[in-house]
Write a protein that binds this DNA or RNA. Sequence first.
DNA 1: ACCTGAACACCGTTCAAGT
DNA 2: ACCTGAACACCGTTCAAGT
Lengths: 215, 215
Amino acid sequence: MPRSDSTGYVRNSRDDVVSAALGILDQQGLPDLTMRHLATTLGVAPSALYWHFPNKQSLLAAVSDQIIAAARPSAAPTDDWRSTVRAEAAALHDALLAFKDGAEVVSSTLALGLGADALQRRLAAAIGRGGFDDQTTALAAETLVHFIVGHAFHRQQRMQADSLGAVAAQHSLDRENPADRPTTPQAFDLGITLLVAGLDTQSRTTPPLGDRNGS
Amino acid sequence: MPRSDSTGYVRNSRDDVVSAALGILDQQGLPDLTMRHLATTLGVAPSALYWHFPNKQSLLAAVSDQIIAAARPSAAPTDDWRSTVRAEAAALHDALLAFKDGAEVVSSTLALGLGADALQRRLAAAIGRGGFDDQTTALAAETLVHFIVGHAFHRQQRMQADSLGAVAAQHSLDRENPADRPTTPQAFDLGITLLVAGLDTQSRTTPPLGDRNGS
DNA sequence: ACCTGAACACCGTTCAAGT
DNA sequence: ACCTGAACACCGTTCAAGT
């Protein structure tokens, strides 16, 4: 919470700024998350934000980290590694969808190479329990990240396009066109299934944890 | 090529505009591809561009389609379906990397649901030869698209960050951090391998084309 | 430790009018 | 069929100065 000063200034902490940014993101969307709008919401001049963050990108990175940190898998990690991967992937997917334009923010932060490391680290930890070498584990985690973020981004954009009242494009609604079909939860499940099944065909350095077929 | 008029006007066709946009994109990058800059390059006022395109997004969609159309797989499609998928994926990957910021442009166009359909269509055609049902084929193609675009985007961003002279982040260079490791071609290969292997474990409606194990 | 005020150098888009 | 000119309503960022 911003405090009021003896000087009459509105004094915000770095966390106040991030919280306000998350609020605008969720209620108005990324296009409305401008430095000027954010400053107005906080009751300060736009330039005040640059005391807390060197630029907008780093602000978005902080927002992005917040979104990812909110992801909590529902299942306990005592299962076999495949379930752990699926649970972690689902939790991250849901976290991206929980905030409006959440996937886009994380996607851009990820691409820029700022933060959002937690995403890949958590998936790598889950995959590592399958007994793959570090290289395979890291690369597989990267593959999962691209799929999860790409899928969530795509889905979120569709949802908003739909809620904005029909496509209004030149072909209105073309069920023959794969790009016009709704993005269903099945698409996510199949993607994860393919990746996990593919991993399962890879050679291992150590026997997987929780594999019902033993070593 | 823009023609000069009896009126002294510089008359551009829609294709002239797209070509110029592609040129700016490749030589300066997406941040410099502004409507104003593009107009200057073409020798017209910014407002002139709005005769050819309703807005910037649709211009980028046309640029995006152009990038994807340039993708040509090197191998003939007479192989087994797995090689066809790999060849198609590699061709699309290379096409995204061929233009500076190409992956980002295609990614945004894709997310917005404008164009870039060719990407998914081509992958679906390749996968379909594996004998999967239409649903599985379409969803698998979507998975591949997210991976290919996400991977290329990530890689392109890294390349530019590197060429811009060191990371300059707070940890400079942290080889323990998976996000700091270079994105290698291996990452792409493994991703495709996992997806193809995963698909291979799926049930089929018809025997795959070119499967050396018969039906 | 955190903010103001003023400025700089830009954006995308619209629209009536011109040729 | 394609362009101009002028305007509208914005952006992110910097920096000296204030409390």
